[in-house]
Design a protein around this nucleic acid. Structure first.
Length: 857
RNA sequence: GCCGGGAUGGCGGAACUGGCAGACGCAGCGGACUUAAAAUCCGCAGCUGUUAAAAGCGGCGUGGGGGUUCGAGUCCCCCUCUCGGCACCA
């Protein structure tokens, strides 16, 4: 009997020493579940500073992937750190829940999109909780539910009211086989993803657009002020907005053939206009048919060009062969009255500028290529001034580039000859304006945002069509326009909602007559353009947001997400913010002051994907190593901004480290729970004890600085690892009765330092070492440890000694030694002496605290 | 084509404003504990020459070539490869 007892006691001893993440994590998980308000932000707190940390909300695809884990591990570490520093932290989470995959899943598995989505959310939320992310779930936002999308519709009505939403006919991808509209992602190599042999067509459909371009200038200018955003993202947005200054110039269509039509071209290089030898129109330019009349041959050749353009666009083909059709007509250059041919060309885009250009082959590669092919004149009108080489009698072999320098020189340009390029642009624009055939202008590449989707699983656009009244908005009081359930969404063509008579048939609010509902739904980017405002008060029923509450929390202090959202989501969000501000319901100009884009998670050199079979499931990692290890590895493997190559052996490594920390704390926990011994005078401390104290303060310093600076959490974790390694080396001394005060300090601070990264373990440790600890660290505020700069300093400094830049030895001197002392010790050092043998010292460079370089000859 | 990252041991990565390259971790090697293994703990470890071996002493090393500097992974010029974004934008 007594044997049995012994064995059991022995076993339990062993179990106590062993790090068992499952046991620890399940225990805390259960506790946190039981106190749902643990991470809730105070609605208003005048005593504490607010901090809004936001991670991009996921699409509920079914399960979290490692990219999510990485994103949320970064955000959670930051949220917990700010929390421990006494901030009122808002750290919410939600679901970007509308979208195409739900429809595909519905078709494939015969599950309604709503059910599929909500069950995915339930699963992913459970995963997040199991991973220990500290979200304020009382503010959860699910975009596919009416309490949220109602406000999408409300905003749409406001957009419409302000002239920021409008309808126009536009091209969409159309699969003739499915008889339906395809999203761009469903077009693979110009063909339908479901019918790989079927070419996707471009069809004209009436679509709703949001006038993002009204804010082009502000969206661009605002980027300069977003200093907390990565330069990369700002550059990408600048390019996307694509502002360019130029001029519109009218070319009259040759009067000998017809009346007084003119073609307006856009050019950024009006200085080259004397070199224009043709006009090029986009195949879809409205004047094309007018110019070529009804010549069936020409018409079909222009159609070919259109088709080629569409194909190239769908296939992502750039710089394809240029083709053109001569219209048989001429235009007059308003500067020199020269008659030049009008062509239609495959390389001219209707969507940019005016869809018409003046072609200057001598100074543009594209025009040059085209002119060579179709034997159009090439005339040089500008040269670099320094070459002073007049052009040869023939045509140049290649376009004269670059020609934009300050010292450029115009030639063959009438009264503008001999001006520099920059002067010429100025004077020629003024000339064109003065003579009424041109004007300066600014063009943007940014286009209005087409938000109509001919799909089911999205926010219904709250508009009605009445035979008598035309387009009529749904009155605010009738919102939300509910998305009907049990809709047949199999691909039959057109919007699925169009096949639901109860939905389509409505009453006109103006005349009371019969009306038809808009059956398109909104792009899901609408949902994600303002969701973060909703978090500030997710349960409001009479307004989308409460202005004073938004004023308190906004702007977001730190937004964290993948760089793949650098353009679309982040431009739409910025646009929406400006629109809301102009509505007067918020007062900030930008959504977020700081943005962090984390790197991708890859494995074996490739992005994780099912087809490559290199997907690592967070669930498996948690089951094998625990949530703490999984999270810690996501932070430790590399700095957060870089690409992360997932290596399972690396997870094992951090798991081992957590075990080391756990065992050290647990076997000494009892010591530390006792009241601490008195601290003796510092001078009396043995070096090893002093070293531990120093390392403790150095570690706190390093981790704190990583949080405040570059977020290189990999080095924060490395610092804590070093600290633990040193604790192992000094355990014997440290556990001496005399140094209990330090041991207690060390254990507490170790738990606190781990708290942002490995919350389960940190709480477990805290509970073990503190008499009051049963609630764990999560109940604490204002607890981030502080370091004493004086205690981080070494007593002695080892100087590296170089002779002519080559390392030749080391000398140890007391800290704070004056330079002269350092110099003397260096010259007295035997190794240095040997290296200096027979040489003459020219000078000695002393870098304080680091290195000495003796320069000899 | 344009714009922006990146290239450091066998691997992931450190090195903040120029100052001991390779912290920390993985894999590896050696040792302790164990009947044994796992786990754990301690130690070694860039490449290379000299050497029986080691210590010691030296040489070479941050994609390649030049430069600035007492000193360069870090700054400047040129080049290669690679990843990402945009792409016929007039």
């Amino acid at each position: 009997m007594s044997d049995t007892v012994n064995i059991t006691a022995n076993q339990s001893d062993q179990r106590e020493q062993r790090y068992e993440p499952q046991r620890i994590e399940e225990k805390w998980h259960a506790r946190w579940e039981a106190s749902p308000d643990l991470y809730a932000a105070e609605p208003h707190d005048s005593k504490r500073k607010k901090y809004y940390v936001l991670e991009m909300l996921p699409y509920p695809s079914g399960a979290l992937h490692m990219g999510h884990v990485r994103n949320y591990s970064i955000g959670d570490a930051l949220a917990r750190y700010m929390w421990m520093n006494g901030y009122n932290v808002l750290h919410p989470m939600g679901w970007d829940a509308f979208g195409l995959p739900a429809e595909n899943a519905a078709i494939k598995n015969n599950v309604p999109p709503r059910q599929w989505t909500l069950s995915n959310i339930a699963h992913m939320k459970a995963q997040m909780k199991r991973l220990g992310f500290a979200y304020d779930w009382s503010r959860e936002v699910t975009t596919c539910l009416p309490d949220y999308y109602k406000w999408n519709q409300w905003f749409f009505l406001k957009l419409y009211e302000k002239g920021l939403a409008y309808r126009k006919s536009s091209k969409v991808n159309w699969c003739p086989e499915c008889a339906t509209v395809l999203a761009n992602e469903q077009v693979v190599d110009g063909c339908c993803w479901r019918h790989e042999e079927t070419q996707v067509e471009q069809r004209e459909l009436e679509q709703w657009f949001v006038r993002t371009t009204r804010y082009s200038e502000e969206l661009l200018a605002g980027l300069d002020k977003l200093e907390g955003w990565p330069e990369k993202v700002r550059t990408m947005q600048r390019n996307w907005i694509g502002r360019s200054e130029g001029a519109l110039v009218d070319f009259a269509v040759d009067a000998s053939v017809s009346g007084k039509e003119k073609i307006t071209v856009f050019t950024t290089r009006i200085d080259t206009i004397y070199g224009a030898t043709s006009i090029q129109l986009a195949p879809e330019h409205p004047m094309v048919s007018e110019l070529i009349g009804n010549d069936p041959h020409l018409l079909s050749r222009v159609e070919d060009l259109t088709r080629e353009q569409a194909r190239a666009k769908a296939e992502g083909d750039a710089n394809i062969d240029k083709h053109g059709v001569f219209t048989g007509r001429y235009a007059v250059n308003p500067f020199n009255q020269e008659k030049i041919p009008i062509w239609v060309a495959s390389y001219i885009l209707m969507g940019y500028g005016t869809g018409a250009i003046m072609s200057v082959p001598a100074h543009d590669d594209r025009d040059f290529e085209f002119a060579k092919k179709y034997d159009i004149a090439i005339r040089v009108v500008i040269l670099p001034r320094r070459t002073l080489e007049p052009p040869g009698p023939g045509e140049p072999e290649e376009p004269v580039l670059p020609y934009t320098e300050k010292d450029s020189l115009l030639i063959n340009s009438g009264e503008f000859t001999e001006l520099s390029n920059q002067e010429a642009i100025e004077k020629m624009s003024a000339y064109a304006e003065a003579h009424g055939f041109g004007k300066r202008t600014v063009t943007y590449r940014l286009k209005d945002w087409g938000i109509s989707r001919q799909r089911y699983w999205g926010t219904p656009i709250p508009m009605l069509y009445c035979a008598g009244c035309g387009v009529v908005p749904v009155p605010e009081k009738d919102l939300p326009v509910l998305l009907p359930e049990n809709v047949d969404i199999t691909l039959q063509g057109g919007s699925p909602l169009g096949r639901v008579p109860e939905f389509v048939n409505a009453t006109c609010p103006k005349c009371g007559g019969a009306a038809r509902r808009e059956t398109d739904t909104m792009d899901t980017f609408v949902d994600s353009s303002w969701y973060f405002y909703r978090y500030t008060n997710a349960k409001l029923t009479d307004r989308p947001l409460d202005t004073p509450t938004v004023d308190y929390w906004f702007p977001i202090d730190q937004y964290i997400g993948g760089v793949e959202h650098a353009i679309l989501h982040l431009i739409y969000s910025r646009f929406w913010t400006k629109f809301m501000r102009d509505l007067g319901i918020i007062h900030n100009d930008e959504p977020a002051t700081r943005l962090f884009t984390q790197g991708m998670v890859i494995k074996d050199g490739a992005k994780m994907s099912k087809s490559k079979g290199n997907v690592v499931s967070p669930d498996d990692m948690v089951a094998q190593f625990g949530a703490d290890s999984t999270r810690l590895y996501a932070l430790f493997a590399t700095s957060p901004d870089r690409e992360l190559d997932w290596q399972e052996a690396g997870v094992e490594g951090v798991h081992r480290f957590l075990g080391r920390a756990y065992r050290f704390v647990m076997r000494n926990a009892a010591v530390s729970r006792d009241s601490a011994s008195a601290q003796p005078a510092r001078e009396a401390l043995p070096p090893k004890i002093k070293a531990i104290e120093r390392k403790l303060h150095q570690t706190i310093k390093r981790v704190t600085e990583d949080f405040q600076g570059r977020w290189h959490f990999n080095t924060s974790v490395a610092a804590i690892m070093e600290f633990v390694n040193e604790l192992y080396g000094a355990e014997e001394e440290l556990t001496n009765e005399k140094y209990k005060w330090l041991l207690a300090d060390v254990l507490r601070n170790l738990a606190l330092l781990l708290a942002p990264f490995a919350p389960f373990l940190a709480n477990e440790l805290w509970e073990a070492i503190t008499p009051e600890g049963s609630g764990g660290i999560d109940l604490l505020r204002h607890r981030w440890p502080e370091f004493d700069p004086a205690l981080t300093k070494e007593d002695e400094i080892t100087y590296a000694v170089q002779v002519n830049g080559k390392l030749r030895g080391h000398v140890v001197v007391p800290a704070e030694s004056p330079e002269e002392t350092v110099r003397e010790s260096v010259l007295a050092d035997e190794k240095v002496k040997a290296a200096l043998e027979g040489k003459q010292v020219v000078k000695i460079i002393v870098i304080a605290g680091k290195l000495v370089n003796v320069v000899v000859k």
